[in-house]
């Protein structure tokens, strides 16, 4: 991963930004098979930071990233983002095990941004649009399945 500085006006410092991108890539790595980027992609990571800036989420995300970095420093003596891929995975999985609340926050933020990225949405066969105003088609389905229940005698309980 390149070590460019965070975008101007960014809410994370440089270490936090790189840690976030590295962690996001561990959670959702890029896939050649499906032709999609990892969640550490710069555009997706910017969206993650934007979404985190609500209520106390940003503070909790930063605390989570700090914890992850502290774990990385403790085991390998280096920032999480600077570890080899296998080392990052091992530290991240330990983080998930030992810090479930922090890990859940991170994975929720990462995936809520990843799964609305145009490239990812297109790979799922979805149209690149919000639900409104076109909406969607849903088949009526097979109402003959109800016939079995319609033959049943009333079984509600009398009120006494």
């Amino acid at each position: 991963m390149t070590r460019e500085t965070p975008p101007e006006g960014h809410l994370l410092n440089e270490t936090e930004w790189h840690t976030l991108r590295a962690l996001a890539d561990v959670i959702v790595p890029p896939s050649e098979k499906y032709g999609v980027p990892g969640a550490g992609d710069e555009a997706i990571a910017k969206t993650i930071v934007k979404d985190a800036n609500y209520g106390d989420k940003l503070a909790r995300l930063i605390a989570a990233l700090d914890t992850l970095n502290a774990m990385s420093q403790g085991v390998h003596g280096a920032e999480f983002a600077l570890l080899r891929e296998d080392q990052r995975e091992a530290v991240a999985f330990t983080f998930r095990e030992e810090q479930p609340a922090a890990a859940t926050l991170a994975e929720q933020l990462v995936t809520q941004c990843y799964y609305r990225d145009d490239r990812v949405v297109a790979s799922l066969g979805m149209e690149l649009r919000p639900p409104m105003p076109e909406g969607y088609q849903v088949e009526q389905g097979d109402w003959s399945l109800l016939e079995q229940v319609q033959k049943r005698q009333p079984f509600h309980r009398p009120a006494g």
């Binding site: 561990v26 959670i27 959702v28 790595p29 896939s31 098979k33 499906y34 999609v36 995975e89 991240a92 999985f93 998930r96 859940t104 994975e107 929720q108 995936t111 809520q112 990843y114 799964y115 609305r116 949405v121 799922l124 979805m126």
Partner: peptide, 29 residues
């Protein structure tokens, strides 16, 4: 929808972090 699929799959350990994430997501979505 997709985000909720991901959140649910991760919470219930049906979708992993890392290797296997995409295949598992697509099995569920």
């Amino acid at each position: 929808p997709p985000v909720r699929t991901a959140h649910t799959g991760l919470r219930h350990k049906r979708i992993p972090w890392g290797e296997g994430h995409h295949d598992a997501f697509r099995r569920m979505f």
